[in-house]
Each structure stands twice: as structure tokens, then as C-alpha cells.
Design a protein around this nucleic acid. Sequence first.
RNA 1: UCCAGAGUAGCUCAAUGGUAGAGCAGCCGGCUGUUAACCGGCGGGUUGCAGGUUCGAGCCCUGCCUCUGGAGCCA
Length: 453
Amino acid sequence: MRTLIKHVLASTEPKEALAIKGWVRTRRDSKGFSFLELNDGSCLANLQIVVDATTPGFENPATLTTGASAAVEGNLVASPASGQKWELRATHIELVGAVDPTYPLQKKGHTPEFLRTIAHLRPRSNLFGTIFRLRSRLAYAVHQFFQDRDFVYVHTPIITASDCEGAGEMFRVTALKGNIDEKPQTDFFGKRTYLTVSGQLEGETFACALSNIYTFGPTFRAENSNTTRHAAEFWMIEPEMAFCDLQGDMDLGEEFIKAMARYAQEHCTEDLSLFAKFVDKDLPERLKFVIERPFVRVPYTDAVKILCGSGRKFEFPVKYGLNLQSEHERFLTEEHFKSPVTVFNYPREIKPFYMRLNDDHKTVAAMDMLVPGIGEVVGGAQREERLDQLLENMRSHKLNPEDYSWYLDLRRFGTVPHAGFGLGFERLLMFLTGVSNIRDVIPFARTPGNADF
RNA sequence: UCCAGAGUAGCUCAAUGGUAGAGCAGCCGGCUGUUAACCGGCGGGUUGCAGGUUCGAGCCCUGCCUCUGGAGCCA
């Protein structure tokens, strides 16, 4: 039976007759024998295999080169040389799949930009193998975090007719040919439909029944965004809590990010060491800081005062009523506070209709969590639970209440204060790994003009 | 979409307007324990595309394409 390399390397004693399968990372030949390093993706480290020239199956060593797949049987022994604790003395080796000389991955390091062009092969590199192992572990940690707190996982629809205002441009979904706007009532669903930009509105309906819920699924934005932190398809986590206000919302967001950092630190130690070494030297220190220190919380009004009083020249103006620009958010989180920062209570004019109006009648109970290096990683709010106020908000945002009748019903039938947020899973991964481009933390990135693979 | 930079061998990069090169990878050979092994040899190019200037363009000019970074939008 096959043993994964991660288990082989964790062995505490020599073992006989192990079966290993994987891909050759590199080979070093000596007279009469070769060193083969095999990787099967179960961990970052390779297993060194010593193959004698007379080992059965090794009659044609030229075929067992970088990239080839192989099955090896042998005995695990303590390695006499430094560099690895264990090595496998092969008793039999078999070429499973040969590799063409055009195999693009080399033993030496490649740039992430080049590896992006071969997205089908890049998980075989150290960096991307590590990234995607960590992505998997963290997806699990997300569920564990919410399930441990009695949150119910809700699968909100991917195809939707409702627009979660303010979330961005939507991709149209249609089965029509020709002019798709001529008779939308004849379309597959009998109306215009889109790929979801957020499961929030549907999530609210479940929170107003099951109390605490979360979604975790693909989300689509048709924005022509070309940046290191935007993708047209990404995974979003959206908790929603009934009987919860903005304070509780901010508490959960902060607790969540800390928990994810802690999980990575405890469960992905080997993988994190690679990021610290080759991607972001400050990563261990940053994770420690995030875990240990409370996040700074500052009302929008105070944030504006800090920015105005900073003496800094900003490219874009800072004034009450204007959105904070990237440079302002960067200043707050990277320079002024040098810590993750939650900005809350934004002017009502710059936020969507569903956010709850504060008693000052000027601001809404919104919050954005900003982290150094990435900017906004969480955006959330307490929702407007008062029917009259919600209707007024919709009027001032020029929305038709008829389009949101089911959403308004939540306020008619046993309304409750509730709050939630959206968190970009890829941005979280960027923060936890130091990887600076969102295209490198998602297996096959969808960005404007690019849907290869 | 806007601004800036870049595009030369499979990869990373050189090359005053004057014969396109190196390292690595690949292939062949050597080496008794290697660690991104080492040593010797060999092959490898429509210089992103299309025009233009010039006796002569990888280099200068124009347009386009792609990539990278920044901005806007946001998660």
C-alpha cells in the first residue's frame, strides 16, 4: 500500500518495504547510483531516494528525470549525510509516466509571474504546492470556526435575480440568443438573472430563522479591475447574526481573523516557514502581532480627523463625506496605527441602502476592517431592521421596493436587529501568507481577459 | 478604464544605432554519498506584432497586443 511522503518523513524508526509514489523533483547521479528526490504533494519536503544502478526497474535512468512520475519500493533508513533525517533505499523502481524534454519546471526557482502562465503545472512547485495546501487547511478552519460557535452553513444561490447594491457589476446569466434584453421574460428563469455578487440578502433570511449562519462559496464581480487584490471569481465568507449589533459584528470579525492566524501558525508550521523564507520575512512577526494585540477601532469621523491632522500630503482629498482612498487606508493601518484597524460609522450617503441608520441620522452602522499590505479584508454592517427606515433608504437610493419584497418581509414579520460581514477568502490567504497577488492564492484565476484553464 | 514600467533562447537576464551573448534548463560523456551536486562537450533565436526613420534598428519614432506595478471599484 502506498504511504504518503509526509508520513514517511515523520517516521520515528526505520521501516522496511515501503511503497512511495510521486513526481521526481531532481536527480543527482554518481557512479553506480543516483539520488532521486520525490515529492507527492503531501508536504513541502521531498523524500531522498537512493537508487543503485542495479535496482530492478532502473535499467533506463534517463527516463527518470525532473517531472516524471515514479513508484518506488524500498527500505527507510537513517540518512548518513546531513540535509535529511531519512532516506529510502530503493529495492524496486518503476517509471509511471515519462516526461518530455519540454517540461517547463526546473529544479531552480521560477518567478510567480512565469508560473502563472502554466497554472496547470504550478501546484508542482514548492511555492504553489504550499499555497494550495494551506488554502485547503484554512477552508477547513473556516468551517470549524463557525461550526464550533453553532453557526449554520447556508448555501445561498449562485444564480440570482437580486442585486446586493454596492457590491459591484454583475455577470448576466442567460439562455437567450441574440438580443438578450429584448424579451427577458422569455429567458430561462422568466427574468433577468445574474451570477451572485453576495449571498448577504439571502443569508439574512436564514439568520432571521436559524439565528447565526454563514456562507462560504464562489462570488462573481464583472468589474474591470486589474489589481493585485481583485478577481472576477473569488470565494467569500459571509456570516450573519440575528440579535446582533455592530459591536458584536466587529467582535466576530476580529475574533475570526485572529483564529485564522492562530490556526495557520499551529497547523501549517512547515508551510508558513517557506513563506517567511521566500515571500515575506516579516510574516511570523505579523501573525504573532495579529494574534496577540486587539485591533484598533476608530469611527470614520475620527479617522478623517487623524488623516487631516497627519500633515501628510495625500493625492486624494480627505473630507467628511468622501470615501477613504487606498492611500488613506494604508496610512491608517501601516503608518499611523501599525495594526489592523476597523473603521466604523460611515456617512450614510456613501454606503448601501441596507445599512442601519445611526441615531445621529448622519451615519450608518458600517464597518471595514483594514490590514497592513492588503487594505480592506472585511466589509460589514448592522442591517436596517426598521421597515419604514429601510423603505426610506431605498427611496433615497432610487431602488424599487417591489424588487425586494421578500427582503422587506423580514422586517414585516418579526424583525430583529442583525448584522454580518463579507470577507474575501483570497485576501485572507494573502494576509496569512504574505503572497502579494490574488492570482497566486486561487488555483485558476479569473480576471478581465483571462479565463484560461 | 486611467497612469507608469517591461517584453531578447525553455527560464533568468546581458548586448554605444554597426556580426544577438551568458548562466541555468535540455541532450551526450565523466565522477563512489549527492543536497538548487560537480566537471567536459553539443544543440538552441521571426529580439511581442505591424508600420516608419536610417547605408544599417534588439536599441530611435507611431500604432496595436501581452505582462507587471499603481489608481478607481471592492472582498
